[in-house]
Every structure is written in structure tokens, then in C-alpha cells.
Amino acid sequence: MLELKGITKKFGGKTILDNIDLTVEDGKILTIVGPSGAGKTTLLRCISGLASVDAGQFLLDGKAFDPATNRDNAAVIGVVFQDYQLFPNLTVRQNVTLAPTMVLKQAKQDANEEADRLLTQLNLRDKADLFPYELSGGQKQRVAIVRALAMHPKLLCYDEPTSALDPDLRREVQQIIVKLRDEGITQIVVTHDIPFAEAIADQMLRVEPKD
């Protein structure tokens, strides 16, 4: 369970996130919606530790933790970026296994096996030896999801997962997210696509721009 208590974030004196309280139960999907500039990406960046907060507290399973400095293998937060940010110099399989081997110290063979299992699950089995430039946008996104999953995250965050996808692919990523929930993975999805948000959400957070 992830809890946010009084999370506040300012950029140069301007308050973007004002005292946000939030609880996400294990295995649930939280969607964060709101107009452009409301601070959705900022909130996601705070949760995933890419931005620091000015006030407030994060609790994971009741224990306080600081996402910005967290290096605890038991409290991984995965992120699927809007532009995927795959590593262009590595094959799909290497993209997936890099962190498990280097950070989790998995044996190369175990990491490869798990990568292939996850890739198969997301219909990418035959893409394992390709480089990111050889993939379509939807395939890149699924690789990004697999790469995050291979670290066994407690929580998986997505920023605008449908923004670059056509309707068919949108449905596909929706199915993936729902399937991952059924496997018990907690997910936070930032989107401005309200129908998509409503289709997948167990819980919805609306953020409004502050002025």
C-alpha cells in the first residue's frame, strides 16, 4: 500500500502540488487525470523519486520512505515513460536484463529466462534480439513495461501511456494494464484520456491547476 501525506511541490515559489493526500491499495489501479499543466507528471515524478518534494511524506506498506534516495530492492517503483526511453544501444532483451543483472545481481541466465517469459507474455518473443529503432511505438512501449516489470516493482507508474497510440493499441495497453492488475501489481496511470482512465481505474485522482 502506498500512502501520500501532505505532498507539496513548488517550482520557484509557484505551488504545483498543494498538500496532496492519497492512498493506493495493493493491486489497484489509480488514474490521475486533469488538464494540461495541472501537475500530473510532476506528481508522478515525485512518487518515482525523479523530483524532490518540498513537504509531505511517502509511506510504503506503512513505512516511511524517500523515493528520491530509495535504493532498497524491496521497494522498487517502476516507471514507463511517455517516450519510453529505451536504451538504443541495447537489444530488447538487453534492455530488460540490464538492471536485473546489475542491480538485483541475478545470474545472466536467470535474467534472460525471465526476460523471455515476460516478453512472451506481452507478445514480444520474436523481438528479443532487435534494437529499439527496429520497433513500432506500441512495441517500444511494451518493452518499456517489460523492462520495468523485470525489476519486480511494488508499484508501476505510467505517464500518458496512450498519447502516442492509435485506438487499437490503446485497447491493447488497456488490456495489459488490467491483466497486470489481476496479477496483483499496483499501478498509477497519468492520462488526460478520460474514457481510458474510467475504463481502467479502481480509483481516480483529479488534479487541478493552482493559480
Partner: peptide
Amino acid sequence: GQYESARVLRLTNWQTLRKIVIPQ
């Protein structure tokens, strides 16, 4: 974004440099 995605995968700075940044 390359540094950020390495960071959320919890690679160290040195690992990021060696495996991702320097080859590129």
C-alpha cells in the same frame, strides 16, 4: 530521459555511464 530511466531502474551513476551513456 536516458539518465532518468536508468535511475528508476536503480542503476548506479557508474553503471549508467558505462552501459548506457558512453556507448551512445
